[in-house]
Design a protein around this nucleic acid. Structure first.
Length: 678
RNA sequence: GGCGAGGUAGCUCAGUUGGUUAGAGCGCAUGAUUCAUAAUCAUGAGGUCUCGGGUUCAAUUCCCGAUCUCGCUACCA
């Protein structure tokens, strides 16, 4: 590790306070961050580990409304829940703060105000939907309406969850406010924008030239964003939940959550120590952000631009983002309850924090998405933690108690093999160091386990249980070395398995030790009394695993039961409305995929009236050759629209079920084109 | 369609600045062993390094193309 840093400031992504913590969060962010921090502390470094709950933003207000409580109630509930489960799990934050804290309001306001006063923002007036009954502007999420793309009637203002289209609220047909149910009106509103484009050149140089050691997935995604060109980004919203924009007359406006959340790292540091500026502004500080891949753009582009604009802050030295963890082959989903929740794990597997830490570290999605399975969890516990690590420590302890009354025996004479074994210790310590310094947690964990493997092999090679009959002094040497290996484990395992490392230290009665002691073959002096040993890990039986799988199975079944929700009937229309639609039978004459699109197919349709061109979003579901000659129905008098440079005249009728399957609506018997459908 | 990441043993992953027999852990097989939570140790089987071209004396590694997975993005009357 570069020893040039005077201190370390390590942040872990602020979890959003609208749900509990699950294994995806842990594997992606908190486990690696905690390992890294514990390692630095063990090296005697000056390190702060910063985290807290992210408590603003629209989803929290929506959840509050659904549950008929205040947003504060929601965040209070989840803040406490997350804070406590992190603590119980052994995530060793220096502080776990929250973005509703007074300090944060002050810090974020000051930050905004400084940029505002320097003229770093662009002011822009835009039209947004306003709910006259509730007398407030509506966030995109507070507007529902008919998706202009797929016709889904409950699309949100920012996105249709049915077809995945991202939308502008003004695209929606029949917009409705979810607050009052009334139809919103467009009103002008003033907002502030951070002109990210102004920092593009700086960011490009900083990321692509000055930080070539960042992970591939991080650099790649940044490059993708930079190449696409950065746009000014709004930093304020019309909302009543958040930090008020600290500008005269800006009533009803709050900081956009992405702007205030990263400042939360600074506020939390400020809550922790009066010396906070030393950590944030002195170039001697090593700043590292641990995040998941969904946060890369904010931590590598947006937040650095903010810090750069402010001017007095340092920038992160690295942003080791992980990919995502799946669960039993499927994406983890809070809303579908497809997750392993930390608070439930802690309840159902009491005292097994280290098991989950070990499994999540060994399957950490460092370079690509990875899968967590309960079977793998069980196998790693039984075959690695129990059989390799726990077993070795137990063997060394039991043998010493048996032959030497629980005292570290003296070393007689070292054989060549003894020396070779001892020389492995510093090598393994260095391997762990090298890998941790480079954020390669899985490799580091392996090297740690290799210490235990070394011990097992050493015992097997030297067979003290046999030699004791002929040469007790030799057994003393063998066990001394075995105990030195155990002492090394007590130190090196600390970052990864903090609970077990403490136990091992108790077993061998080892006082406070430092990382620098690892690698030594004389940590324990001869005659040193050992403590009592117990089992470090225990086997996990099939029943416990089956129970977890059953739980997931039940979550899945529940989802499936809820799935086939037929959409409610649309509001009544008059016969007149209906009769204005001119639906005809037709035949598809030609079909060609529209180049450079994924979904679009260009069709030539005989409508009986004429032969016309129609563009339809069906290319994902049908091959052109399969639909030529197909009898279809077409809404013929839909106003023409230009799509990808092609004028589409009409809309082909298709039936779609809840799973998204598309089927043409076809006359039951052959009909010549042009017959009216009514 | 564009961009990014990834595709290496049954599983989870290292690796190769191009160079003799491509590695690890787990799983599997065989043998040894019994101090230890039926744990451990040794040996072995198992890979056309996604596919097709090209550059090169030599490619899994570099270039081009295809294909699959994940993510971002455009399109969806």
């Amino acid at each position: 590790m570069e020893t040039t840093y005077k201190r370390h400031l390590i942040t872990a992504a602020l979890p959003y306070a609208n749900g509990p913590v699950h294994i995806g969060h842990l594997a992606g962010v908190y486990v690696p961050a905690d390992i890294y921090v514990r390692y630095l502390r063990l090296r005697g470094e000056d390190v702060l580990f910063i985290c807290g709950s992210d408590e603003h933003g629209v989803p929290i207000t929506i959840k509050a409304r659904q549950e008929k409580v205040s947003p504060q109630d929601i965040v209070d509930k989840f803040h406490v829940m997350m804070r406590d489960s992190f603590a119980e799990f052994g995530i060793s934050f220096s502080i776990y703060s929250r973005t509703t804290s007074k300090t944060h309001y002050k810090t974020a306001s000051e930050f905004f105000r400084k940029l505002y006063d320097k003229g770093d923002f662009i002011e822009k007036t835009t039209s947004q939907y306003y709910d006259e009954e509730a007398q407030q502007f509506l966030a995109d999420r507070y507007i529902t309406g008919t998706c202009p793309v797929c016709g889904n009637e409950s699309a949100y203002g920012d996105q249709c969850e049915k077809c995945g289209s991202s939308l502008n609220a003004t695209d929606l047909k029949n917009p409705k406010s979810t607050i009052s149910g009334s139809t919103p009106v467009l009103r002008e509103t003033l907002h502030w924008f951070l002109p990210l484009d102004r920092y593009e050149a700086f960011l490009r140089k900083w990321i692509l030239e000055e930080n070539k050691d960042w992970k591939q997935n991080v650099t790649g995604q940044c490059k993708s964003w930079l190449d696409a060109g950065l746009q000014p980004r709004a930093v304020s919203r019309d909302l009543d939940w958040g930090i008020p924009v600290p500008v005269e007359g800006a009533t009803g406006k709050v900081l956009y959550v992405w702007f205030d959340a990263p400042i939360g790292y600074i506020s939390a540091t400020r809550d922790l120590t009066e010396d906070w500026e030393k950590y944030w502004k002195d170039p001697g500080t090593h700043l590292v952000h641990f995040i998941g891949k969904d946060n890369i753009v904010f931590h590598c582009i947006v937040f650095p631009a903010m810090l750069k604009a402010e001017g007095s802050y340092i920038l992160p030295a690295n942003v080791p983002a992980n990919e995502f963890l799946n669960l039993e082959g499927e994406k983890i989903s809070t809303s579908r309850n497809w997750a392993v929740w930390l608070h439930e794990y802690l309840r159902e597997f009491p005292g097994k924090q280290d098991v989950l830490r070990y499994v999540l570290c060994s399957t950490m999605p460092e370079a690509k998405d990875n899968d967590f399975t309960w079977k793998d969890f069980q196998a790693r516990n039984n075959n690695e933690l129990v059989a390799v690590l726990g077993n070795f420590v137990n063997r060394a302890m039991v043998l010493t108690h048996k032959y030497f009354e629980g005292r570290v025996p003296p070393v007689a004479e070292l054989t060549e093999a003894d020396r070779a074994t001892l020389s492995e210790l510093p090598r393994l310590r260095e391997a762990v160091e090298y890998n941790l310094d480079n954020f390669r947690f899985r490799e580091a964990l392996k090297s740690m386990m290799d210490i235990a493997r070394l011990g097992n092999k050493y015992l097997a090679d030297n067979e003290p249980w046999k030699v004791i009959k002929t040469d007790p002094a030799r057994v003393g040497t063998v066990l001394n070395i075995s105990l030195q290996i155990t002492a090394n484990l007590a130190i090196v395992a600390q970052p990864f398995l903090p609970f077990s490392a403490v136990k091992i230290a108790e077993f061998i009665n080892l006082g406070k030790s430092l990382w620098q002691d690892a690698g030594r073959g004389d940590i324990l002096e001869s005659g040193h009394p050992l403590g009592e040993a117990s089992l470090l890990f225990e086997k996990i039986e099939d029943e416990a695993i089956d129970l977890q799988l059953l739980k997931l199975q039940q979550a899945k079944e529940q989802n499936q039961q809820e799935k086939p929700a037929t959409k409610p009937q649309k509001e009544d229309i008059s016969y007149d409305d209906f009769s204005r639609m001119d639906i005809r039978t037709g035949i598809i004459l030609e079909a060609v995929k529209v180049p450079k699109t994924k979904k679009l197919m260009q069709l030539k349709v005989d409508t009986g009236i004429d032969v016309r061109t129609v563009v339809s979003g069906i290319a994902e579901y049908f091959e052109p050759q399969d639909i030529i000659g197909k009898n279809i129905c077409i809404l013929a008098n839909l106003a023409p629209r230009e799509i990808k440079g092609i004028t589409s005249q009409g809309m082909i009728l298709l039936a779609e079920d809840a799973s998204g399957k598309l089927v043409f609506v076809t006359p039951e018997e052959g009909m010549s084109p042009g017959a009216e459908v009514k």
